[in-house]
Simulated assay, not measured.
Amino acid sequence: MSTTPSTDPLATGTHTVEIDGVTQSYHVHGSGPVLVAHSGGPGIFWEYLRMPALEEHLTVVYPEPIGTGASGRLPAHPHGYTRARYSRFLAALIEHLGVPEVHLLGHSHGGFVAQYHALHHPDRIAGVILYDSAPVTGPEHGAEAMRLVQEFAARNADNPDLPEVIEAFQSIPTISDDAQMTAVARGIFPAYFADFWGRQDEFGPARAGVTATYISGLDDDLTPDVIDDRAALGSLTVPTLVLVGRHDVICGVRWAEELHELIPGSELVIFENSGHFGHLEEPEAFAKAVAAFVEAPAGN
């Protein structure tokens, strides 16, 4: 592992470090205890996860997950981006930061990565925050998401922009390049909020700014990176905070409650006026919940 000539690896700004021959880009903002925030997708560029209200309390490190943005791509791109590989890059990044422990936040697919990392590499993790995540993917997760999207469609049946959102969901299986991935991510964006259209002036710029890389979800040998952590989560020893928006359609309350039940001693916070982006929809409540968890005395 090598790094570009730099000042402090936790100095505010953009940094790069080379891990396994691949460039890992990351961004540092804020001050206070260190929180590493892993964005989702997989393939969504990190900027949507920027959390200014939280940066008032914590030093937030935002990795650009490999395969996205300024970070390098794997030789097998768009394949090979498994949780084990993302976790390997997280471990090397945390070592590079040079602090004894960090808190780790994972949003959406980043939550899948964070729970994997906390299960397999807990030694440098002071606490893990599973933000709009789930213990399982596959048909069961897909069926629940479909049910919640149908509820969203029913609530917004009279909205003239609804067909565009539904069409974007229906096109997900056909994505095969970065342009299609970005178009679909922007297309489905309204469904990921409690009330996107009621706050469109506020959230429209975030939608326009979404950028994504196509990541296949397959390993190098083209096998799916299937997730089912339900049997393992009972052995998770890292302090855990589970966060979810009441109106999240993709990783809804059902999954947050299941994570909370499976993980010993975990805390659960539900943001009643949020969908999949509580840090945008209820930023102060989000920052308060995360900061309180990070700053809690050990053992509490």
Rank of each mutant, 00 (worst) to 15 (best):
L10H: 10
L35D: 05
S266N: 09
A76L: 02
H27I: 11
A231E: 14
G43F: 09
D132G: 09
P63L: 04
A231P: 00
R147D: 14
I215R: 05
W255H: 13
G72W: 08
I263Q: 06
G234C: 07
W46Q: 15
L162E: 03
E258H: 05
A145F: 03
E101C: 09
T68V: 08
I227C: 04
E258M: 09
H27R: 14
Q150P: 01
A157W: 04
T213A: 15
A183R: 12
E101R: 15
S171M: 12
A157M: 07
Q24N: 07
V226N: 13
R246G: 00
I175F: 00
D177Q: 09
D132C: 12
E56L: 07
L236F: 04
P135N: 15
G142V: 03
R73E: 12
A157H: 13
E95K: 15
T182S: 06
V294I: 09
H96D: 14
L130H: 07
L130M: 06
I250H: 13
A212V: 01
R50E: 08
D177T: 07
G69N: 10
A134P: 00
L148N: 10
R207P: 01
G21T: 05
P139H: 08
R246F: 02
A154I: 04
T12R: 11
S6K: 08
A92D: 12
E55D: 08
A143V: 05
N159K: 07
L74M: 11
E47D: 11
I19M: 04
V149T: 00
G21A: 06
T14G: 00
H247M: 09
A292P: 13
M51E: 10
Y26A: 10
D229G: 01
D195Y: 01
Y48F: 10
H27A: 03
R254G: 10
A191H: 02
M146Q: 13
T14H: 10
A191N: 04
D225E: 12
Y116D: 15
A194Q: 11
M1G: 14
T12I: 12
Y48G: 01
D201S: 06
L90P: 04
S176I: 02
G80K: 05
L54N: 04
A153Y: 02
V165A: 05
E56I: 01
A191K: 03
G98E: 13
G245Y: 07
P65M: 12
F196T: 01
R207C: 02
D248E: 11
S39D: 14
T68S: 10
D201T: 01
V22C: 05
V34P: 13
H27M: 09
T3G: 13
S133K: 03
F89R: 00
D221E: 12
V294L: 06
I94P: 13
F196E: 02
Y192D: 06
V210W: 04
A232Q: 14
A53S: 09
L104C: 10
L74S: 10
L130W: 08
I172P: 14
D221T: 05
V226H: 07
N300F: 08
S216N: 05
E144W: 03
L162M: 07
G127F: 06
M1L: 14
G127C: 04
Y116A: 09
A185N: 13
G98Y: 10
G40V: 03
G204C: 01
R199F: 01
F189Q: 08
E272I: 01
G217Q: 07
A134R: 15
L105Y: 04
L268D: 12
I250T: 15
V242Y: 02
H121D: 14
M51G: 00
R50A: 07
W46R: 15
V210Y: 03
F169L: 13
